[in-house]
Design a protein around this nucleic acid. Sequence first.
RNA 1: GCCGGAGUGGUGGAAUUGGUAGACACGCUGGAUUCAAAAUCCAGUGCUGGUAACAGCGUGCGGGUUCAAGUCCCGCCUUCGGUACCA
Length: 941
Amino acid sequence: MIDYAAIERKWRAYWDENETYRVTENTSKPKYYVLDMFPYPSGAGLHVGHPLGYIASDIFSRHKRMSGYNVLHPMGFDAFGLPAEQYALQTGIHPAVSTQQNMERYREQLSALGFSFDWSRELYTCDPNYYRWTQWIFIQLYEHYYDNKHQKALPITSLVATFESTGNSDIDAANSCDTIFSAAEWMAMNRNQQEDILMQYRLAFKKIGYVNWCEELGTVLANDQVKDGVSERGGFPVVQKAMSQWYLRITAYADRLLYDLESVDWSHALKTMQRNWIGRSEGASVWFAIEGSEEKIEIFTTRIDTIYGATYMVLAPEHDLVRQLTTEEQQADVNAYLAYTSAKSEVERMAEKKVTGTFIGAYAINPFTNDRLPIYIGEYVLKDYGTGAIMAVPSDDDRDKAFAQKFDIPIIDVVDKTDYPGATLSDKVGKLINSDFLNGLEVKDAIKAATEHAEKIGVGKAVANYKMRDANFSRQRYWGEPFPITYDSDGIAHPVANEHLPVVLPDTQDFKPAAGGLSPLARLTDWVTLSSGHTRETDTMPAVAGSSWYYLRYMDPSNDENFASPEAINYWQSVDLYVGGAEHAVAHLLYARFWHKFLYDKGLVPTTEPFKKLINQGMIQGTIEFIYLRKNQDATEFVSADLVDTDEGVARIPVHVDMVSNYGSKDSVLTKEGLAKFIEWRPIYTEATFTTSSGTYTLQEFPDSESFVTLSEVGKMSKSKYNVINPDEVIGQYGTDCFRMYEMFLGPIEQSKPWDTKGIDGVSKFLRKFIDMFYDKETFSLDEASPSPEELKVLHTCIKKVNADIEAFSFNTCISAMMIAVNELRKLNCRKREILLPFVQMIAPFAPFLSEELWERSGQSASVHATTYPTHEEKWLVESNVTYPICFNGKKRATESFDAGLPPSELEALARELDYIDKWTAGKPIRKVIVVPGRMINIVS
RNA sequence: GCCGGAGUGGUGGAAUUGGUAGACACGCUGGAUUCAAAAUCCAGUGCUGGUAACAGCGUGCGGGUUCAAGUCCCGCCUUCGGUACCA
């Protein structure tokens, strides 16, 4: 009856030709912006997991569109980034070429899935017409600083004006400048000095910082690209290295990024993740004088109340004052310790967590007690958090305590916790002791009192600190946006003039990373050196640059004058619904919010947040199979191998050495029969014994000798785990509509679940039954008679439920509601036009191809997707009778049907008359009867 | 360790947010159709006892609130994410 492949071809062509999904700024309709996180076009193409979010957002978009909204639903590609470049290094194929190919493949796969994207708005981040504006925004960041008093970004020129009139002492701005200067001092500086100072205020700035350096990839990585001390991509070791790098001062926006989370409709889990990442903690800054030095040590503490218990100080090994304060006698020790810490990689430090450190010979003065405190350096104090220095209170901090015990430093108890049994050291409870004027105060009050005292005597102040660091923005790689920055002969940075944007990424085949942390672009001397004598910045921007603002470009993707016209931005405002994976919960979403707030400060966007509502779709996982093998040389050692061979035809024999102890909980059994099948399936294992590069293995048998140990786990679909399922096969067999509906039917959209085609027949059957209703034997024919109230009730119940559930992103229950309706209509033998046409409209967002075809065959013109979505009429839903469960003391014992119009009092009276009451009350008098109209009746005795 | 989710039949999952637990679907069992199979259709299917009517039990575990708890509160267990020497 229906040839799926044919109708899919037909309607895709129709939609293309008629630009069915094209959208313009139509002010006569309310707007709605539905955005999917744009994909990185990888070489592997889409697997069944990718479309989950796209299907959901497509259904939602189609529903909104049919409900009278002007819907912007675009798609594009996050096309710059490491994988294409790594691929290029392996194959010699230019990233621009492979990226183009991959994008074409994605485009084809995406449109095969019937998504209603407005492809005329497609963008990709490696397009010069796009990254011209990425560069432009970068320049704006460079030319602005963040003013804390006004809580917004202001032009750097106004900062210069202030410097010229009053110096920097009155300025409250986000900065990394620790010198204070007067107007006269400013005017006396040479240009280099002035530019250095300004750099410490700019929102995009250059500084020397410790960065995650990955030698293997030849580049710096962001914190979130490093997992467990190795690069997320490739798993190469990552070490700390000091390099001059571009940064974005995202910390300036920390408070707003934190507090504005309250205004967005995101999941609780996601907001918490962002809050933790920003990591605001309230505390105090305190300055400790140093014996025999003009310098002071600034520390950050959340427990200023414990200052009377401070018995020593610790600086991070990289702290600026270390060199200066180290005494001659301690020099050798300190040098040895510094050598020790700098040789250690992040991985080692994390694994070890040893208590290490050394005394540097100097003493600080406790500003509250005037006690001499020895100054140590220790790796447990981090350079980048707070001020890189702490006052150590061993009585009330686990780490300080361990350190003090190791180095024999006195411990003074300052908090009495006897009133709080079970409280740990880190709990902020107890009464202060041994603490002068703080004695007897509760911790909370003591913190307040101590902070006030510090402020009064001028040795400290209340401050908030953040875990979040400024964002490293430099990559020493080829495949990214070039910085729109040149340097003059004095090394002073200059933004590239607007008319010279974009700075186009030069073409080359030589994209290998250069030695010494230089970008491949540094080798292109013709490009680097300009006729003016300036030289170009040769680092490129990270992938997060292009994705930080792409949602704005969709509003007006081909504008040459602006990143998007003010009119378009004003019309579309911001993204109403954003759908994407939780793996971008922190980095991408924080950067995008930061850029958006900056543009808001500049008056370029009308909203403070870019994404009003956000849905994280779950991951569709694959099954990862392991088979347990015994290494022949050593019968006691067990290892696992992936169930599949590699491209080279060699079994992979990784990890899980001691998993044998687990096999009671997770195992499934591979019988001898199963083994035969397995060998048939993977001919490389011709016997139960086989040899690989790492040895000879035998399948591990269970003691009963009838079976072997195997394991399967669910996990992310990935090429390397050989568990990728391509949607093409499923679509070929069942059709796109069925695939779409099945993915939705699998369960709630936000939940992760393993892919399993077991249930797809149910959806397929449902669609077939639905189509059947349009046919009389083999002929397409609808019943023109008027529908019965019963039929209308089925239809309208379903319409009501589907409308509500789409709004609630509960697509699985929409589909079950439609299944129920079809089952009931079939029972009623209904083939009525007045029932089935609204049904076609109702199912259209879910099954865009089939609905279009049935709509046409029913003699309707134009696209079903251009029609108005059905809404329910309450009059068809009213029931004349309601069936009530009759409960006795909360337990359901019977059901009774009553007239729906009866008031509760009459229902109660009827209930009291029921003849089986005695049976359940066991003769006890009825204490009361609870009637919940329309729900239930409970008789309490 | 800390933070945040989640635990419901053989399976995926429903349950209008405190009101008939297990909708819908898969699977399974029996039957119809068929030379046979596939497909399709019909019936049954939480567990326990019983031929049955029916009864008891039942939403990870233990308490509690309530006429009524999968849903709320307290204490655990398991599991999945995030994060980790953050002062």
